[in-house]
Design a protein around this nucleic acid. Structure first.
Lengths: 212, 212, 212, 212
DNA sequence: GATGAATGAGGATTCATTCAT
DNA sequence: GATGAATGAATCCTCATTCAT
């Protein structure tokens, strides 16, 4: 039934495993040396292959990094999209997405940094519309709009509000990663959600623009 | 009274002027070519001196960049500290600081990016306790604590709240810089402050941790 | 009578077909990418075989190129030799040979260039006494001698005259190939023959060495 | 009176000497390893400098090769142009130019090959209108036209005739270079001129196109 | 025999740093 | 102190050749 011969499938499998290995190696190098420290040499060494072999799987360094980016972002995008599409209150969705992010930090410290924070990466991957950042803003923005429509969030420019939320969340990630802070995820999520929802004012939450 | 001879002071003055020129050149290169595009060659050329001369003022590239960082952050730190020390409500202080940031973006796009956003810079300057970021968090944190003490802000972990605020503000800077957004500063400040104070919830602002 | 078993002959046949395919592929690559653009990879791909398979038929790249050279030159040599052996006036033979060359350019632009013009090839194939060039000079030389003997050509060092003729003809090929000139073959032949026979002098053709 | 300071002139001199040295080195490598054997590494080594130093004088390999080409062709062009402009019969001019070529071969075997013969070089330098070949054809062509106007040469397409002459001469150069032939220059010149003027026919030189 | 992934020696180019003048 | 040429390690990429399957 399959349109692929056995050997073809086997080849695909091997290729795929190799790419996996390269991915892992790249992530390790990323984690260890930072974005600027990623050299084909190092990746090859980490992956236990010869430098030239990398070029059997990726036409050049950029393509390799794009693959790493995509592969790392993909699960987050998947989850975010699933959450986005689910039928729940906007508030729940936001919380869920943020939880996903914070959870995944712990799993992929090095890449995450690379993906969302590194400006080098950004330059490098400029034009990748698949950018984690752009996608995140997009989704958050839509959910915030949903929240506004539901009457749960105050009316606002959804996009700009999404920025702010994303910035706050990103900073938390950043600190967890670079400052070595190590707070439990639920705590982080609660903090961010509280901040996001009510801000810091102790005053009874009047719709601020109206009453001041 | 002075312990320096005239010629010594003159020398110091020249040195200082030279460093100024190098600073300006570095900033120009930063703005023009981005963080990875900073080469000693380019800096020297922009400064109108020979490449080798840079090494009369800085032992190496890292030191030069650290100087740039420090010098660029300094005025922001000064202003932030002045605001911090002034006798005003915490809320005003926060708003003032944020306004300073947003204003200075427009003035120094290139450096600002480098200072606050570029992770390369961060790697490079790792350990620089003078980091704009660390300092910013510090000050914000203290002011937030003041606000809590004044009863204007809900009690919270001041440091973590400072993160969140900083993250949100930083993201706005980031977008202004990289996405080419070009909103007026007062607008940006208002957005951030609203977000910071009241969050997005449309519900009467109950102290959320208490009532849930 | 045959000393080869059936399977051996079959093997030879297969080998031969394979070499043919490789030859065609190499010519295609030569035509498409030029002499420096010939990689084993490309040849294999064009031939529809795996890179490694090439090494079952040729010990290395040089051998492959030598084979290509030889096989491409062969028909020209055959024709030249046939013409050479035929019973005709020297003049006719020369014209016939030149016509063969010019005609074959159109058919095999890529190879021809490689064979006669490319100095890389020459370096590569250095020592190949089978060189098209050497052979051409040889044959021309003999025919010119015949012409001298016939009294149709002025006495001269046949070899050196052959050089000159070959050079002129080669240049025409070169221009047709690289300059993209596209004159009809008969025209080209006439030009060269005229030049070869009478030169450019408008003076009544005195035997120049005698009368000066 | 000079507009350059002493040190500037000195610098220029040093730069010039360095370029000379690189030129010599490149020619040596060219001679020794052929056009494809020219690597920056080898040139640097031959010149006795570090690889990187070459890039202080040429932005890249192509520029270096173009410089070599130009510098090698320049004297030939100069002489050819001087001859072209002089007031003499076309015949003399042609002979003079050919003599120049044949003489210079002996002086610069390696480069000459590279300049006029190597197709790699041609690819590399494609677009260099300064190409020795193109220039040569140009000049020859003009002189031939002069000869026709003078009534000394039979009417013909000057350009095409120039090709043929150039081809014949080039072939002689080629053979001197690659075949290691070592005939005296005057002999070579006489051969070529005879061929060029009268061709090989022993018949009284009728204007062939007219009388046949 | 066929395959094509793996190899690693090269090759072009960049750039921080040194040092003679 | 100023200069900028020289250096060479580092980096990306290519490609002929080998070899396990």
């Amino acid at each position: 039934m399959s349109e692929l011969t056995l050997s073809e499938r086997r080849k695909d499998l091997l290729t795929s495993m190799m790419k996996d290995a390269i991915y892992e190696a790249a992530v390790a190098v990323l984690t260890e040396h930072g974005a600027t420290g990623v050299t084909m040499e190092r990746v090859a060494e980490k992956a236990g292959v010869a430098k030239g072999s990398l070029y059997n799987y990726f036409p050049n360094k950029l393509a390799l990094l794009q693959f790493v980016h995509e592969r790392a972002v993909e699960p987050l995008k998947q989850k975010a999209e699933a959450i986005f599409r689910s039928r729940r209150p906007a508030l729940d969705k936001i919380e869920a997405i943020i939880r996903v992010w914070f959870t995944s930090i712990d799993e992929q410290r090095g890449v995450f940094n690379f993906l969302f924070l590194d400006t080098n990466a950004r330059d490098l991957l400029k034009g990748e519309e698949a950018s984690g950042r752009a996608f995140a803003i997009e989704v958050l923005s839509a959910i915030i709009q949903q929240g506004v429509d539901e009457g749960v969030f105050r009316p606002s420019d959804a996009k700009r509000t999404a920025w702010l939320l994303f910035g706050a969340a990103r900073e938390v990630c950043d600190l967890q990663l670079t400052a070595g802070t190590d707070l439990p995820v639920p705590q982080l999520v609660e903090d961010v959600m509280n901040f996001f929802l009510h801000g810091v004012s102790s005053l009874a939450g009047r719709s601020p623009t109206k009453e001041e």
